[in-house]
């Protein structure tokens, strides 16, 4: 039996379906990367697992317990790191963690010990008495995590925990996820940053428009993505005519332009490279750099949905 079982779950907001007959199993001790663009239904799915959002039909079980029938017991097993910072800015870091720990039922020496360990875990032990209002974005994100894991939850759910932070804090958070997993927690990690999911997840689930469109280990998904490669170009000038002609090429499936950088998605980079160079030359576009890239989850997502993750 899987630790988290999501069975045929549907969630509607009025006439709009946010989660559409979603089926997903998460095994105990794994880190599941939940991938999808904005509005794919990731946060709604997490909200339903945590008992924050009602389920219209279907069911979710965590540790063998139904979220609908035993919400309190399920919540005792959970630690939610919300997408937005959920802290009291005018309460010292230590008291923030202590308050949420008390709500989880910790008290006495266990409470003190757990708070201390949680702050050490996120590297904020020397900032325990300082106010989060004085913290950097990355420190606040780390405190946000400490407030969710001090009771050593069996299931840690992280909803885009690295939004808007510096690389150093991001690495710290990614290392913390691995550490939590090593300590025995099952982790659900949502992001629309492919690199992060690739860095921490043992298994990946990709959802779009409320549907599960692919799931498996990274190597399994890479195999599926092998049909698609990328050519990364840096050219000047990037004109409308150049982009139009690239898009119209029969072997190029999608074109993304960002300033002087162009990304081409195509089934075989090698076979089309000559054509691409020829088109650039015809439009008098000077090539600064050119790179052919092996398939990855981003290209799989594009292949499956026709959209990029950041669309």
């Amino acid at each position: 039996m899987s630790f988290v079982e999501i069975k045929d779950v549907v969630k509607r907001y009025g006439s709009r379906i946010s989660v559409d007959h979603l089926n997903l199993n998460i095994e105990e001790g794994e880190v599941l990367g939940l991938l999808g663009p904005n509005g794919a239904g990731k946060s709604t799915t997490i909200g339903m697992i945590c008992g924050l959002i009602g389920i219209d039909s279907g069911g979710i079980r965590v540790g063998g317990l139904s979220v609908k029938e035993s919400p309190m017991e399920v919540k005792r097993m959970l630690g939610l790191v919300p997408q937005d910072l959920a802290l009291y800015e005018k309460l010292p870091a230590e008291e923030n963690v202590m308050f949420f720990a008390r709500l989880h039922g910790l008290r006495g020496s266990l409470l003190k010990q757990s708070v201390k360990e949680a702050l050490e875990f996120v590297g904020l032990e020397d900032k325990a008495r300082e106010l989060p209002a004085t913290f950097s974005g990355g420190m606040k994100r780390r405190l946000n995590i400490a407030c969710a894991i001090m009771h050593r939850p069996k299931l840690v759910i992280m909803d885009e925990p690295t939004v808007g932070i510096d690389p150093q804090s991001r690495n710290h958070i990614l290392e913390a996820v691995r550490e939590l997993n090593r300590a025995g927690s099952t982790v659900i990690y949502t992001s629309h940053y492919m690199e992060e999911v690739e860095a921490v997840s043992s298994r990946v689930a990709i959802i779009d428009r409320g549907h599960l469109i692919a799931s498996g280990t990274q190597s399994e998904l890479r195999e599926r993505a092998a049909q698609q490669e990328r050519i990364l170009l840096q050219v000047t000038p990037v004109t409308e005519e150049l982009l139009k002609e690239l898009k119209e090429h029969p072997r190029i499936e999608a074109v993304e332009a960002d300033g002087d950088r162009i990304t081409l998605y195509l089934s075989s980079a090698q076979r089309s490279l000559q054509d691409v160079l020829f088109i650039c030359a015809r439009h008098e576009a000077l090539i600064g750099s050119l790179e052919c890239e092996a398939p990855n989850l981003e290209s799989l997502f594009l292949n499956l949905t026709g959209r990029t993750l950041r669309d």
Binding site: C50, G51, L52, K75, R76, L87, Y88, A148
Partner: peptide, 13 residues
């Protein structure tokens, strides 16, 4: 507004 309510509602209270 500061999302602490969401965090608390995900706790057994």
């Amino acid at each position: 507004e500061n999302r602490t309510l969401q965090r608390m509602y995900a706790m057994p209270i």
